[in-house]
Amino acid sequence: MKILRAFIFALTIAADVAYAGSAADSPAPISQPATASTPELNLRWMMEGEKRYRTNCGRCHQPPHKFEPRVMATAVRHMRVRGMLTDEDMKYVLYYMTH
């Protein structure tokens, strides 16, 4: 039990440090004023999708390459549930991996 208590304590400290560190470099919110789909918007979704792919898709296994779009559509939904991705992560990654 001692090992576990020390371990949990260490994890809590690590979480505090990580949060304190990340609060400083918060990015600007992604949502912009309402717009219809445009090439600039598509480029932004693509870049945001790639960023989220890099952050999330190599966490458990090596990041996979892009399969055909309809295969990706199933696999990313599967990963949303398995990997507990947020709804937003899923949408951006789905956009990036199917376009």
């Binding site: 990706m72 559509a73 199933t74 951006y92 789905l94 199917t98």
Partner: peptide, 8 residues
């Protein structure tokens, strides 16, 4: 846009 490809 993300839903364009239908899952199979």
């Amino acid at each position: 846009a993300a839903d364009e490809a239908k899952p199979i």
